[in-house]
Each structure stands twice: as structure tokens, then as C-alpha cells.
């Protein structure tokens, strides 16, 4: 039953899955470093400078510190949920990447074998990403609930309310992209944007920029970053849902947060910025491999999110709700209408 071709196919998929997991697992390290450097330079400081050249080994030192720290479980905590919560927060963040394409098929030299740069091209990729991405909230709610601490619980509850409010706008933004590109598959979405910057969804005038703004705002709220990091508001909630966490369990939450940032950047690039397509359709631009364009765009967005973090103050809770329910949702409903009219 199992012939060689199928076997090789399975092995390739396993290798790709391992590779992807390893890359994503190690991504938060350079990202924490980058975040601290960006923070430092925006504050006209230097950021980490002492561990390695320009502090490049700082994340390793931090990891070592987190591993060596005592793993505290609060006395009255729900032990099972408390230990489960970081994993529930982390795993969906990784699972999102199953459906994300990183480029067209490439041919490996020497072996002469075509390999796809994605784990699976789901024809409902965008739905899968939204569904799995929404699961991460359980980790935060469980963490807040199981800690038996009022700050953690309030952080978890805020997070839940925030997610519910912004999930709608986020889904609408995805609907907008689906309407613009006529497909639910992320791979097809990128293919629909081929041929230069004016074909990208963000410049699908007049409605593309609106969808992009809705998506970015909702995504910022979804990944709990400033200006929408109400669940871990230091000023009022100690540090929110992960107040009681320490050591490696805490670092799982951080890992989930950074992976979420990467996945949101990747999604933005795929949905609005033409994925791996170069900005101009010329021989020189096409010569550069698509994965390079893809990475460059993703890095630009990661920088954008960090830049935003050190620019904007945190929104008040009622403002957050107002933006979500009174502005983004009506705006996205109107945008659906306009997009529909444009498609006639």
C-alpha cells in the first residue's frame, strides 16, 4: 500500500513541520532582543549592550535565567489548569502556521525535486487561521482563572471581552479580503495579488486601505499588544493574567505573544501586501527570490508593531470597547457593502 513516493512525501512533510516548529520556537529570541533594542533607541538609549556584541546574546542569558528560576504554583491555584494554561496559549499560536504559505513551490537543486513552501494549502485557510488563532484566548482565560488571584482573573476577563469585541472586526476584515480576492485559500489570495504594488489588496482602491486599517487595529487588539494590552495592564493589574506565573511557564506566555505577533505580521503581508510578490514587476525584482520579499515585508511589519508599542499610550478600557463596537464593526459592515458594490 505504501509506495516509495508516498513515503517520501510523508517524510518531506515531517521534515518541513519540524523545521517550521524549530524556526518559530527560536524566533522569540531575536525578537525580544529586537524589541529591547527598538525600545532603547526610541528612548535615545542603547538597549542591551553587555552580553555579546550589541547585546545579541542577551536572549540566551534571559532564557537561562528563566530556566533557572523557581517554578511557583500558588497555594490555592487550580494546579491542573494552571499548568495547562501556558500550553493552551502557546500551541494555537504554532498551529496557525500550518496553513500559512511562505512562497510558491521551489525546486531543490541536485535532488531536482519540487517542494512546496507550506505544510498544507487548505482551501479554507483563512477560516482555519481565524479559528485556531481564536483558541489562544483560552490559555489566557485559564491562566487568569486558575491563578486564584484577583489581578490575574481581571486580566483574563478583560482579555476575553477584548477578544470577543475585536474578533468580529478581524473576521470582517478577512471577509473583505475574501471578497476582494474571491478565494478563502491563503495561497490563492497571494496569487491574486501578483503583478506589482497596484495589485496588492492594500491598494485595492477605495476600500483596500480601510480593510487594512480595520485589520491592523483588530489584530493589534487580538495579540494583546500596546495600545490594546489591557489584559496585562501594569498600571492597574500588576501584570494581568500572568501575574502568578514564573520561570518557564511565564516564558511560554511570552513565546505565544511573540509568535502571535509574527503570525499577524505574516497574515498582514499575505492578505494585504502581496505575500512574496515583489513591489514592482521587473526582471530585477523578479530575480530576487520570493521568500526574501516575504521576509522583508514581515520584518517591516514586526518593526512597525514594535514602533507602535513605544509610541502610543494604552487605551482606557471603555475607549477600547467604544473603538471595537461603535467604530470598527459598523465601519466594517459598511465596507462589506462597498466591497460588494465594487464587485458587481
Amino acid at each position: 500500500m505504501l509506495d516509495t513516493a508516498t513515503l517520501i512525501e510523508v517524510i518531506i512533510i515531517i521534515v518541513k513541520a519540524w523545521l517550521l516548529t524549530a524556526i518559530i520556537f527560536s524566533l522569540p529570541m531575536p525578537l525580544t532582543w529586537l524589541e529591547r533594542k527598538v525600545a532603547g533607541h526610541i528612548h535615545v538609549r542603547l538597549g542591551p549592550m553587555r552580553v555579546g556584541p550589541h547585546g545579541i546574546l542577551q536572549p540566551l542569558a534571559d532564557t537561562l535565567k528563566l530556566i533557572l528560576k523557581e517554578d511557583i504554583v500558588p497555594d490555592r491555584a487550580d494546579r491542573f489548569l494552571f499548568k495547562l494554561a501556558p500550553l493552551i496559549a502557546m500551541i494555537p499560536a504554532f498551529l496557525v502556521f500550518v496553513a500559512i504559505p511562505f512562497g510558491e513551490n521551489v525546486t531543490i537543486p541536485f535532488v531536482n525535486r519540487e517542494v512546496s513552501l507550506y505544510l498544507s494549502d487548505l482551501n479554507v485557510g483563512i477560516l482555519y487561521v481565524l479559528a485556531i488563532g481564536g483558541l489562544g484566548i483560552y490559555g489566557i482565560i485559564f491562566g487568569g482563572w486558575a491563578s486564584n488571584s484577583k489581578y490575574a482573573l481581571l486580566g483574563g476577563l478583560r482579555s476575553a471581552a477584548q477578544m470577543i469585541s475585536y474578533e468580529i472586526a478581524l473576521s470582517f476584515a478577512c471577509i473583505g479580503v475574501v471578497m476582494m480576492t474571491d478565494t478563502l485559500s491563503l495561497l490563492e489570495m497571494v496569487r491574486a495579488q501578483a503583478g506589482g504594488i497596484h495589485h496588492w489588496n492594500v491598494l485595492y482602491l477605495p476600500i483596500g486601505p480601510v480593510w487594512f486599517v480595520i485589520f491592523i487595529i483588530a489584530a493589534l487588539a487580538e495579540m494583546n499588544r500596546i495600545p490594546f494590552d489591557l489584559p496585562e495592564d501594569e498600571g492597574t493589574l500588576a501584570s494581568g493574567f500572568h501575574t502568578e506565573y514564573s520561570g518557564m511557564r511565564f516564558s511560554y506566555f511570552m513565546l505565544a505573544e511573540y509568535v502571535a505577533m509574527v503570525s499577524v505580521s505574516v497574515l498582514t503581508v499575505i492578505m494585504f501586501f502581496g505575500g512574496w510578490h515583489p513591489p514592482l514587476d521587473g526582471a530585477l525584482f523578479n530575480f530576487v527570490p520570493g521568500i526574501f520579499w516575504f521576509m522583508a515585508k514581515v520584518v517591516a511589519f514586526i518593526y512597525f508593531f514594535m514602533w507602535l508599542r513605544f509610541t502610543l499610550p494604552r487605551y482606557r478600557y471603555d475607549q477600547l470597547m467604544t473603538i471595537g463596537w461603535k467604530i470598527l464593526i459598523p465601519l466594517s459592515l459598511v465596507s462589506v457593502l462597498i466591497t460588494g458594490l465594487m464587485k458587481i
Binding site: V38, G40, H41, I42, H43, V44, R45, L46, W307, L308, F310, T311, L312
Partner: peptide
């Protein structure tokens, strides 16, 4: 206003550190 703020932080980001 957002863009003004972002421009200010970007200017600081590329300016020389005073450390």
C-alpha cells in the same frame, strides 16, 4: 495625530543615543 507621533518616535529611533 498618530502619524505625527510615529514620526517623532522614528526620529528618535534613528538619532544618536545619549547613553
Amino acid at each position: 495625530d498618530f502619524i505625527k507621533g510615529l514620526a517623532i518616535t522614528l526620529r528618535y529611533n534613528v538619532s544618536r543615543s545619549i547613553t
